[in-house]
Design a protein around this nucleic acid. Sequence first.
DNA 1: GTAATTGCAAATACTTTGCCACGTA
DNA 2: TACGTGGCAAAGTATTTGCAATTAC
Lengths: 141, 141
Amino acid sequence: MPTNVEQLIDQCRSLGLRRTKALEQLLMTLLESGRPMTLAELAGSERLVDQCDKATVFRLLQRLADKGIVRRLGLHERAAYFTLILAGRHQDYLICTECGSIEPVKAPCPVHALEEEIRETTGYQNLYHELEFFGTCPQCA
Amino acid sequence: MPTNVEQLIDQCRSLGLRRTKALEQLLMTLLESGRPMTLAELAGSERLVDQCDKATVFRLLQRLADKGIVRRLGLHERAAYFTLILAGRHQDYLICTECGSIEPVKAPCPVHALEEEIRETTGYQNLYHELEFFGTCPQCA
DNA sequence: GTAATTGCAAATACTTTGCCACGTA
DNA sequence: TACGTGGCAAAGTATTTGCAATTAC
């Protein structure tokens, strides 16, 4: 499972994507930031703003999500968030409803057992989950 | 805690909202459906379509969310979903990524202990969480 | 050479607001 | 009467698509 840009690009190539500057920069940006980012953030980021159009970033994210390299998250904002799917690095998030800050939850995710149960009980496939905590952060309180 | 329309309306009134036809019908619709609904669904529903404008439903939902009577959910769709906050009826959802169907998870939510821990550890206030499972439902598989 | 990818601009989708009329308390 | 509420229409924000030009393989 990929943990650096070259591995990610290899993975993309093996799934049929072409190695373009935009793809490289997008993957680097996501990898470096280590947090979910919106399309607008990504397209406006240092590495991408002079590299390609927002539509290109959009379509790249779309392809990456199709291939299971990136995940699209809700996180309650109007804009969608995107994050890399990295090996064994499932994250839950703690989000301030006032300032919108997003931080990863440090504790291990308590949902895996239930996910397993749902998989067996319901027959749903490709199961994954999204868990977010919302509240007022100490700064905003 | 409210479980029927009259109780809900009382709660609204005690929080300063006026008793209008639109409010009544909106609360009834949410209560009857028992599942999260989008603004478009609500405004187009039988009880509301001839009752009031979509903007009115929007502003009602906004007020209800402010007062803590309704919760706005992400659920990965482009449109936001709204659901009543009913006593002791926290729900997690199982969502098909193909057809978009949303069903409540029957099993009890396994997250309360972690939520408590986060409350104590981080100092976040008014904490709540949202847990969704995504996958391909048996029909779509 | 060929099919995937891109830029630009336009179209969609959903949400949000302004303003004045109206209804509830 | 006074202020919350409602309708209608317009503006805002984010996403998505069409098409011709370009680029990776």
